[in-house]
Design a protein around this nucleic acid. Structure first.
Lengths: 218, 218
DNA sequence: ACGGTCACAGTGGGATACCAAAAAGTTGAT
DNA sequence: ATCAACTTTTTGGTATCCCACTGTGACCGT
């Protein structure tokens, strides 16, 4: 589901949600900072309702914490939270690639291969943004090939947290190479190899997040 | 009837959510039937606001479908949805029991054993309600022992769908026996056995849901 | 200084009334 | 019968008002 440009009739609540989400993920709103409905409504020139809905949505995405009758705050993640998150993500992503390996067709593999090739090319050109986009498509196509809507739904919810906690993977070439291995195993429907390498793939991105957290103290 | 002591400060939105959820799960609102904010608000003598929030919550729980600017409807599940759901659930529950097996302590195993014993006793007495409650506690303690909050969060979201799709497991004694096997494997920290038997445990409950669906003609 | 009490401001939850925009439903012309 | 135009229904959103509860800090007694 790509950009969808000038959607003239975008719901206010959706717009507000996107703005707040970006504020949080991009660090413009720090963990622990207050989200006061009235203030945000004033800032964005909307009524309190869309803001309320946006906050609810972000709570369900796990990046905001709200208690009744007080302000909501941007969630503060602990080392433990990151560990928990990584464990669950490992299981879900492994599942995706295994299902995709079992169910893919030639067309799907072709799409993944093209995404991988674009990723590799961008990585070699040190084009961070391009590599990130291609890698994202690699994952999206995999979810599609897994043909399990509920899994897709779950991953979608996790995606915000993922963006926030892990940011982009630094060494683009290493990631592209890992994707190549995953792709080959998928094409060969080699689920056993996937069960081994996907967790390793994820682990390589995890330390970065933990280090960033350590720097902030927490 | 209303057991709950007059919790004076229950949020209306929470109350409305619970009522609607029960209506859906218990079949008082059929799949496909409309959820009209205004009408529900009138029925329950509240304003549209709590109803709106309740509907959003139920959408995030996956039992209601809402499109912009029209009424929401109770979700209609297809055979495929149930299949998808079962696949994801299998992975998550396996994860829970494996983590719980790796991380439990004596006290935790004791709590699970007592829950199991109450379940068995209730099952022998043909006490459906009692067995269901004890089985639920069995699962809850397992989630707790898994000590992964995010996993617990995920399972909580799934729980409504679970209740709705699968209802109660029919043969209480068979379920209790499966729980015994899981419990013993957990106590022995035998994750390999768990990886084998948990999926089997879940599969035994799945056919019932599919048959019920088939009767309704999907 | 210190710890607890208490009053008050801040904030979300909810009610009410109203409007706009889009979808759903109805009617009528062809 | 089909499709276009019209009407109705319904949600999304704005604007206010009020209440219950939370958080905070001043006050007080020790």
């Amino acid at each position: 589901m790509a950009a969808a440009v000038g959607t003239s009739s975008e719901l206010e609540s959706v717009r507000v949600t996107r703005i707040l989400r970006d504020d949080i993920v991009l660090g413009r709103r720090a963990p622990g900072s207050r989200l006061v409905e009235r203030d945000i409504a004033a800032e964005l020139s909307v009524s309190r309702l869309p803001v309320r809905e946006a906050i609810r949505t972000l709570v369900s995405e796990g990046v905001v914490v709200a208690r009744p009758r007080t302000w909501a705050v941007v969630r503060e993640f602990t080392r433990r939270d990151i560990q928990d998150f990584a464990e669950v993500r490992e299981a879900l992503e492994t599942l995706i690639f295994i299902f995709a390996a079992e169910r893919h067709d030639e067309i799907g593999i072709g799409r993944m291969r093209r995404a991988y090739e674009r990723e590799l090319e961008a990585a070699r050109a040190d084009d961070t943004e391009g590599a990130r986009k291609a890698a994202a498509e690699f994952h999206e196509v995999a979810v599609e090939l897994a043909s399990n809507e509920m899994l897709g739904e779950l991953i979608a919810v996790f995606l915000t947290r993922l963006r926030w906690l892990f940011g982009q993977h630094e060494n683009l070439l290493a990631m592209a190479d890992e994707h190549r291995i995953i792709l080959e195993a998928m094409a060969a429907r080699d689920t056993e190899t996937l069960r081994r390498i996907v967790p390793a793939h994820l682990a390589s991105g995890q330390t970065a997040a933990e280090q960033r957290l350590a720097l902030r103290g927490s």
